[in-house]
Design a protein around this nucleic acid. Sequence first.
DNA 1: GAGGCAGATCTTTTT
DNA 2: GATCTGCCTC
Length: 821
Amino acid sequence: MSSIRLPPVCAHASTAPLPIPSLDSLNDSQRQAATHVEGPLLVLAGPGSGKTRVVTHRIAHLISQGVPAGQIVALSFTNKAADEMRRRVTELVGPQPVEMGTFHRFAARLLRRHAGFVGLTSDYSILDPDDAGAVLKRAAKKLGLSLSHTPIDRLAGTISRAKNDLLTPETFEPRWGRPADEVARRLWPLYQQMLLDANSVDFDDLLVHSARLLTDNPDLRAILDARHRWILVDEYQDTNAVQYCIVRGLSIDHPNLAVTGDPDQAIYGWRGASIRNILEFERDYPTAAVVKLEHNYRSSANILGTADRLIAHNSRRKPKRLITAAAPGELVRIVLDSTSHDEADRIAAEIAHAISSGKRSPRDFAILFRTNALSRSLEVALRSCGVSYQLVRGLEFFKRREIRDVVAWLRLLKNPRDDEALLRVVNVPPRGIGRQSLELLAAWAEDHRLSRLDAAARAAGIPGLSKRAANALVQFGRLHAELCAAAAAPDLRIAALLEAVLNRTGYRQMLADDGVDEDGNDRLANVEELITAAQQLDDDIAARRQAGDTAASGAAADDDPLAAFLETTALVADTDIWDPTVERVALMTFHAAKGLEFPVVYLVAMEDGILPHERSLDHPDQLEEERRLVFVGITRGMHEVHASCARMRDYRGTRRISAPSLFLNEMIGSETVLAGPEAPASGNLAVESFFDEDPSGDDRFDAADFADDARAAPSAQITRQDGLTLELEDAPAAAPQRRPARANLAFATAADLAERLSGSVKPKHNLSAGQRVWHAEYGAGLLSGISGTGPRSVGTVIFDGPAGTRKFILGHGSIEPADEK
DNA sequence: GAGGCAGATCTTTTT
DNA sequence: GATCTGCCTC
């Protein structure tokens, strides 16, 4: 059992004299960025270009120039990155009350202080996706919607995506041909109401409420803008519309906004991230200074050359150089294995050998894969070779039933209206309160406009409830009240509160009785682990109190240990678990590897259908995102990169035969070498046996030729902004190239955003009757008439093809003007 | 009301 | 392969 560590709360202390940080270690462009003080700044930073150095030096520089540290906010993608930033800033100028963290944490605190503006109290609960899913399920049940054909995950995903696009239940328009959208639209308002009643938010709401806070309250916005006067955003290429809105809203009066990012490393498009944000930063902030960091200090020349060649295949990008002074180093190795097990065994053996020969230590290695499910065979192989590893999928700890139960208890103490938490713990350990009783309770509570907990205290008066169940509920209410009293203690220590919960609820007894469960999990030990983590947080807070730190902007949440603990447990991320100091090989997804670096990197399962993922094959935009993912993977490597695929793979319980990823082809060049039992003797990957559908007939093509083909290939398919794909049947390579759908978010100003957020601006269409139009499925046609106005207006289209005449809601965007040349 | 079993279902990436 | 659901029995 690996131990868990919670990210520390901000360590504030502001009395130390300020050393002036030396800028000698920076190159010219780094220094230019680091010494920028006033006004917007865009830093385009390639991989390994010392971005974090620049950001930390800039923060240190700002402080040394007299900028109050409390006015600086640095937003990063993971808590890990934030911690690293904090560590390095502290190294430069000592501990500072700079607010650093993820967007979600920042938003959670903002909301904590201004919860009333969005109808919450500062004790609101943050529901993780599982809890949010459960609420959604209850909402569906209430509405009598069947979920058999629209899995809850998809609905949650649809709503999440819409929230991230700043839509509301009112402005959300189900897309044509997506039944899940329609269900989501009906479910969303009730779901939202239930969250509000429970004084709860889901992950997305943290951002959405914060954005709304800013757009709906101009005075508050101005105050916050002034308070957070210097804002730094990392990984800006992966910010989405809500995040954009928040950042924008905080930097109108004081546009000292500095963003860093790399469009070539944008890998979160599926989550609503819009490259547009970084590509059009200069339009948003015309006075922006732009600094390019193109010098790479991480990777060997061979690794960079390979990454460069690969990414050059993307059409939607700002060309960018990767400059290095490094030696060529080892060739990038592309290995074609026979089976997935061979691949895993080979890698494990190679790593074991490198370690035993003293050449490398375990933490020098990372193995990256596209999906988490791919880790299993690698784990088995590593274990059998005696190589220790850490699987960076740490959320597993917080997903354990016992951990969730205990945390739910704390949530319920903080927020008595948290129905979801109540449902989790009310009958654990069994108290004789079953489904039937809970339904009676819920119905009665609703009738009387009470939370379930308040209703429980009055259970004796609920008709239909058995005496036994009523008693149990009243008892439960008392238990809660008792523990609330414990939670209200001054100088509360979370560890102590956890102990109290465990002891008084009988949960500890229950776990002790269970002993080790069927999978060999010692559930009690896991809970103890949580207590240890809580102790660390307690100590942090105590230390801070002792230091007399009441940092200027008074981080309200931090003064409340329980709130801080809950916030932290709710918002830990996968990568936060990764511990770079531990002597283990790191196993993680390509996504999780973002921002990290390793001497040796293995990229596994690079096969068609896995990477690129089969769901992205039809969509040029998504294919490019997959390519960026590989680019990110390759550029994690400092000295060695090994990419591999297997001809036969056991995956998801079945065996599949697959061809090497087209990305492997695109990587091939003078910096790479082919190896492995399936490697063609010609030293060229592009042999017939690997490509059943050789696009060039009997032409034997070399890597360069293939590259050109690949570049042209996507023109055969078009993805539109609503996600539908257009296939040009049997399109020749020279098929007319249609422009990719424009980025989804056609807004530029905060005012525009505000309107959009409040729902007053509907998605536009710019169509008029008589116009030639295009539909992804039915092809070209004539828009013969439009009825109604606004987003709900309906257009009638007479298609040229067999589709005949059909009607469409124009606001959905399924009909677009035909751009005939 | 609780617990256990069999069958069905769906498989990306994550704050 | 894993998880969830519904159904069954005690």
